[in-house]
Amino acid sequence: MAKLLEMKVVLDPGQLARISTDLLTDGYQIRFRAIGDSMQPTIRDGDVIVVKPAAGRHIRIGDLVMFMNSHERTVVHRVVAKKRNAGKLFFQTCGDNASDLDKPIERGQVTGIIKQILRDGVRVEDRGIRKLLKRVWYCARARKIKISNHTR
């Protein structure tokens, strides 16, 4: 028989996206290591993120949410605006360090809401006025990107 159990496998991004979506849809919280710099400095490459299911939860502007993009990859970005179109709720998302806005996503595409960010095992979290200011700052930044793209 071949080896039955392979310990601690590393999943490819597509598999990670599918398993994440599957588990969150089933009501589990998940944790995984972030890759990339689109959310710097809020989330750094290598930070561990804890995500809770989005189903049934209210999503506010400024929240960090998780969704699967059109390339079937897991994305964690910030909600910078909400809009309704033909009775459906859409979110505009953007990375804190991204130079472009994402394609708007439907409410149903959001699978998770970021609950905790751990850096070197320690929880990093903004609270109170700092948290509010950060939300306002990054949403204003996204609006600036939108205006700048519009006038190009």
Partner: peptide
């Protein structure tokens, strides 16, 4: 938690009610 995703059968540990995708085990058919 046992899951089959994209041809891969995996076991995911639940640590303090959180599924840890950092510590996944892969299983073959047997």
């Amino acid at each position: 938690i046992f899951r089959k995703v994209a041809g891969e059968a995996v076991l995911i540990p639940l640590t303090k009610e959180v599924a840890d995708l950092e510590a996944i085990y892969s299983l073959n058919d047997v």
